[in-house]
Simulated assay, not measured.
Amino acid sequence: MTRTIDFYFDFISPFSYLAQLKLPALARRTECELDFWPIDIPEAKIAAGNYGPSNREVPPKIKVMMADLERWAAKYEVRLRFPASFACADWNCATLYAREQGNAELFVAAAFHRIWGLGIDPRDRDELRACAVETGLDPDAAIAFVESSLGQNEYRKVRSMAYQRGVFGAPMMFVDDQIFWGNDRLDFLENYLIK
């Protein structure tokens, strides 16, 4: 039976950007399916009882985090540019439309590249439309899904199920009864899968 890696991410997360660069190949090497599940990190933290400030509000933490991000980007040989805003909810929701169309992996990769590789403004609907076109999706249908009560309800349901499962941040990868949190846990994930 093929195992599934459930990948919980938020386009607001640079560490999710880094993780998704490696996860598809890891899934193929270990003969696993990879499922993409968008969440909302601030909401996930609160659902888990973490009412502390965001990383951006803790100067010593953000300083170390920025250095880590630069190191990871250099290690992966990718560009990492902070986006013009962190308004990523529509992109998260659009992932569910891409899932329905069987195009989640392509959409997620292209969206992360635009948001964290190029540093675009996620509030720009033209960017979302262009990402849909680039990944073979109907841009009008993708935007309509994001704006619909159906799309918003689906996104709310996916987030609720994630928090009930124990998701408290991103990136998180679930396989069997194992949970791996963070881009730096991919080696642990692969070791578990090849045992």
Score class of each variant (00 low, 15 high):
Leu189Met: 02
Lys157Gln: 15
Ser54Trp: 02
Thr135Cys: 15
Leu23Asn: 01
Arg129Phe: 11
Lys22Trp: 07
Ala109Trp: 09
Trp37His: 15
Phe11Arg: 06
Glu105Ser: 14
Glu190Gly: 03
Val64Leu: 15
Val133Glu: 15
Ile143Lys: 05
Ala170Trp: 03
Ile46Thr: 02
Pro53Cys: 03
Gly166His: 01
Gly182Lys: 06
Val167Thr: 03
Glu105Arg: 14
Ala162Trp: 01
Pro42Ser: 01
Tyr51Ile: 00
Leu96Gly: 06
Ala110Tyr: 05
Tyr155Asp: 09
Lys157Tyr: 13
Phe112Asn: 08
Gly151Leu: 03
Tyr17Phe: 15
Pro53Thr: 06
Leu128Ile: 07
Asp184Val: 04
Ala132Arg: 06
Pro59Arg: 07
Phe112Ser: 02
Ala89Asn: 08
Gly117Phe: 09
Arg123Gly: 03
Leu189Lys: 00
Glu127Arg: 06
Pro122Thr: 04
Leu193His: 05
Glu147Ser: 07
Ile12Phe: 08
Asp124Ser: 09
Leu34Lys: 09
Asp10Asn: 07
Arg129Lys: 14
Phe107Thr: 02
Glu190Met: 05
Phe7Val: 03
Met172Gln: 08
Pro59Ala: 08
Phe107Trp: 02
Lys63Met: 13
Asn103Trp: 10
Cys32Phe: 08
Asp177Pro: 07
Gln101Pro: 02
Met161His: 12
Arg123Trp: 01
Glu43His: 05
Asn153Val: 05
Trp116Gln: 10
Met66Phe: 13
Lys157Thr: 15
Gly166Lys: 00
Lys45Trp: 02
Ala104Ser: 11
Gly52Trp: 01
Asn50Tyr: 04
Leu150Trp: 06
Ser148Lys: 04
Thr2Cys: 11
Ala111Ile: 05
Ala141Val: 07
Glu100Gly: 11
Arg165Ser: 08
Phe11Asn: 08
Glu100Ser: 13
Gln20Ala: 12
Lys195Asp: 14
Pro83Thr: 06
Gly169Ile: 05
Ile62Thr: 14
Ser149Met: 12
Asn191Ile: 09
Pro42Ile: 00
Gly136Cys: 13
Lys63Glu: 14
Pro42His: 01
